[in-house]
Design a protein around this nucleic acid. Structure first.
Lengths: 122, 122
DNA sequence: CAGGATCCTAAAAGATACTG
DNA sequence: CAGTATCTTTTAGGATCCTG
C-alpha cells in the first residue's frame, strides 16, 4: 500500500479519512502540536532534563511541555529516565525511532526556506 | 539565521516561541490542519474542481474543504480559477510555490514508513 | 526538581440546511 | 456546482496553584 507521491502513477489506495495507519499520518503525529518541533530540535542536540527544555522555551508552560513529552514517549520517539533520590532529575532522550525524525525536520526547514524565497518573488 | 538541524553546531538563534518567520513554521503551516496533506496529495496529481476534491475525500465536509482551500490560497500555494456562466466550475491548482511541497510530502511518507518499521521491531 | 490537578478560553472540526 | 451560514461538539492551549 505504498503511496507514491513522487511517481504520480496509478495507485489503488483511496483514503476517505486521515487514518492512523497511513505513514504520512504517523510522521505527522510525531511533529504536530505546538512547540513539538522545537522540543524535538532541542533533543536532537542530546539528552535534556525537564527544566533544561523549559529554559530553552521560556513561553512554554509546564503543562504543555508535559503533554508534548508524554506524546513523544507514547509514540516511542523519546525515552525518559529519572534519577532516584531527591530532588528528582529527569533525562529525556531521543530513541532510535526518534532519531529518524531528523531528516524530516531538515526537510521541513529546507521547504520553509524555499517557500519564503519563492513567495518573496511575487 | 539559518538553523542547522543537521549540523549540530553552534547557533545564535534562540526562539522562545513558535514564530511565523521561522522556516519550519512556514512549512508546517502549509501542511497543518486535518485533511491538508490529503488535499495537497490530490492536487499534486493535477488541477481539481471543488467536487472532485470532495469526491476523493468523502468524509470531508464542504465547510472544512473550503477552509483548507482558503488557507492554501491565502498562503499562495494554490490558485483558483472559476469558469464564467452557470453552473460555475472551479479549478484548484498548485502554484509553483505549492509544488515545492512535494519533497516534503515524500519525506513525510518516507519517515512515516521508517517509523512504522522501527517501532515494529520493539 | 518534575510534574499533577483544575479551570478556562479559543480555535478547529463536524452536522445540517440553505443560496448564487 | 460551489460554496455560505449557523450551531454544536471537540480539542488544544494556557494560567494558576498544588504535590511527591
Amino acid at each position: 500500500m505504498s503511496v507514491a507521491f513522487a511517481g504520480v502513477g496509478h495507485q489503488t489506495v483511496t483514503w476517505d479519512r486521515p487514518s492512523s495507519d497511513c505513514p504520512v499520518e504517523v510522521a505527522l503525529a510525531a511533529i504536530s502540536g505546538r512547540w513539538a518541533t522545537l522540543v524535538l530540535r532541542d533533543l536532537m542536540h542530546g539528552p535534556r532534563s525537564f527544566s533544561a527544555l523549559r529554559a530553552g522555551l521560556p513561553s512554554l508552560s509546564a503543562k504543555v511541555l508535559t503533554e508534548r513529552l508524554e506524546s513523544l514517549v507514547a509514540q516511542g520517539l523519546v525515552s525518559c529516565s529519572r534519577s532516584p533520590g531527591f530532588p528528582v532529575r529527569t533525562s529525556y532522550e531521543l530513541t532510535s525511532a526518534g532519531l529518524l525524525l531528523r531528516p524530516l525536520l531538515v526537510e521541513l526547514h529546507r521547504t520553509g526556506e524555499a517557500l519564503l524565497g519563492e513567495l518573496a518573488d511575487d
